[in-house]
């Protein structure tokens, strides 16, 4: 059974259908994959400049907007220097 139980209280990366990438601590979830993220930050990627992190605070994201939830390896994430990363934003979902 694919459940989100293992991610509770862990730092996760959420990719949304519009291509947004949000990192935060997963405080809770439900059967429809609605997710509560605390201490969340949006990571905006661009080809010209490094990653911009926008603090968002407490966030409730609707499950139907979620593409993927990744468990962040905090040590690995800390070692990455976001200002050096150049990348296109993630493409949005199209059906």
């Amino acid at each position: 059974m694919a459940t989100l139980q293992g991610y509770v209280d862990h730092r996760v990366l959420l990719i949304l259908q519009d291509g947004r990438a949000i990192v935060g601590v997963m405080a809770g979830y439900d059967q429809k994959s609605n997710v509560v993220l605390s201490d969340s930050k949006e990571r905006v990627y661009s080809v010209e400049e490094g990653v911009e992190e926008i603090p968002l605070g407490l966030y409730l994201v609707k499950g139907d907007q979620i593409v993927l939830i990744g468990e962040l390896d905090e040590a690995l994430d800390q070692s990455v220097d976001l200002s050096t990363i150049r990348a296109e934003p993630i493409p949005p979902i199209h059906y």
Partner: peptide
């Protein structure tokens, strides 16, 4: 974007 992610949940 997913450099620090080792496992994930996909809808």
């Amino acid at each position: 974007h997913m450099m620090a992610v080792k496992n994930c949940f996909i809808r």
